[in-house]
């Protein structure tokens, strides 16, 4: 029933953890993922709803284990392959 992102009202999640004086990004790569996504949506490579869809379609266990921007990165690479911008081999290489 529904996708893994659709957690409203679900039981079983722990108390809320807060980080004091949290910075906007915890690492440079997070800022780059954020900026890359905006650029790709801005250029019309994909739209925001396709991006959300790609995040939600991550395998459930992967979704829960990944950090927020890790999810974004996985969704971006999946979309780049789906849209034919890069091949899966190119994305995986490096």
């Amino acid at each position: 029933m529904g996708r893994i992102n659709d957690v409203g009202g679900m039981h079983g999640f722990p108390p809320i953890e807060r980080e004091l004086d949290e910075p906007p990004f915890h690492a440079d790569w997070e800022a780059h993922v954020f900026a890359m996504n905006r650029a790709l949506i801005g250029r019309g490579v994909y739209n925001l709803d396709e991006f959300r869809d790609a995040v939600e379609r991550l395998p459930a266990a992967e979704y829960l284990a990944a950090s927020y921007y890790e999810r974004w990165f996985r969704a971006i690479t999946a979309l780049l392959v789906a849209k034919g911008v890069c091949t899966a081999e190119e994305v995986a290489g490096g």
């Binding site: 690492a27 650029a39 971006i76």
Partner: peptide, 25 residues
């Protein structure tokens, strides 16, 4: 390794003219 993979994908996009690192910054 995640940081390296992000750099790699960003480089692929730069090659294709889809992102400009200076513009991103």
């Amino acid at each position: 390794s995640l940081a390296a993979r992000v750099r790699h994908v960003e480089a692929l996009l730069e090659q294709r003219g889809l992102v400009d690192p200076l513009e991103l910054d």
